[in-house]
C-alpha cells in the first residue's frame, strides 16, 4: 500500500459536497478528497485522456457517487467504472436522494458496494456520513490493477 486512498467525490450540488466533506473530516478521515461537480469532468479524471483508466494504476481509489448529475446519470458512471479492468475493484459508494427500491437494486446489480440515501434530517445525514467515514477508515481498498 504505497499510496493512501484518494476519495473521488462526484456530486453536482456544492452544498451537499461541502456537508459530506465536513462530516467525513469530522469522523477523522483525512484522505485526499477530489470533488467533481459534473459527470464529464469526473469521467475524464477517472479514465484519463486515453479512456482506459490506466492512469490510476497503482493508486487506491474510492468513489462517492451521486446519481442525479446535470450531464449524465450516475448509473452510467457506475457501469463504466465496474466494467473497466483497472477501476472495477475500487469501492463505489452511491450517495443520493433517491430511495426508490428499483433504483437501489439496479445499483447493486451493477456492482455498487454501498448505497446510502441522503436523509433530509440533518442529524441522520451527518450520522450516516460519519459512519461512512468510520467505514472508510477500516476498509481495505485495493490498488487499481495493472
Amino acid at each position: 500500500m504505497s499510496k493512501p486512498v484518494t476519495i473521488i467525490m462526484i456530486e453536482d450540488d456544492e452544498g451537499h459536497a461541502r456537508l459530506i466533506e465536513r462530516n467525513i473530516r469530522r469522523s477523522g478521515v483525512n484522505n485526499d478528497i477530489k470533488p467533481f461537480t459534473n459527470g464529464t469532468d469526473a469521467i475524464r479524471y477517472l479514465f484519463g485522456a486515453d479512456g482506459s483508466g490506466s492512469v490510476h494504476k497503482d493508486e487506491a481509489l474510492l468513489v462517492l457517487l451521486d446519481l442525479n448529475l446535470p450531464d449524465m446519470s450516475g448509473i452510467d458512471i457506475l457501469r463504466r467504472v465496474k466494467e473497466n479492468a483497472h477501476l472495477k475493484c475500487a469501492p463505489v459508494v452511491v450517495l443520493t436522494t433517491t430511495d426508490d427500491a428499483q433504483e437501489i437494486k439496479r445499483c447493486y446489480d451493477l456492482g455498487c458496494n454501498v448505497y446510502i440515501t441522503k436523509p433530509v434530517n440533518y442529524e441522520s445525514f451527518a450520522n450516516a456520513i460519519r459512519q461512512l467515514g468510520l467505514f472508510f477508515s477500516v476498509i481495505q481498498v485495493p490498488q487499481a490493477e495493472t
Binding site: 450540488d13 452544498g15 451537499h16 456537508l19 442525479n68 436522494t97 436523509p119 433530509v120 440533518y122 445525514f125
Partner: peptide, 9 residues
Amino acid sequence: RSPLVNIMG
C-alpha cells in the same frame, strides 16, 4: 429534496 438537504444541513 436536494436543496432541502442543503437548507437543513
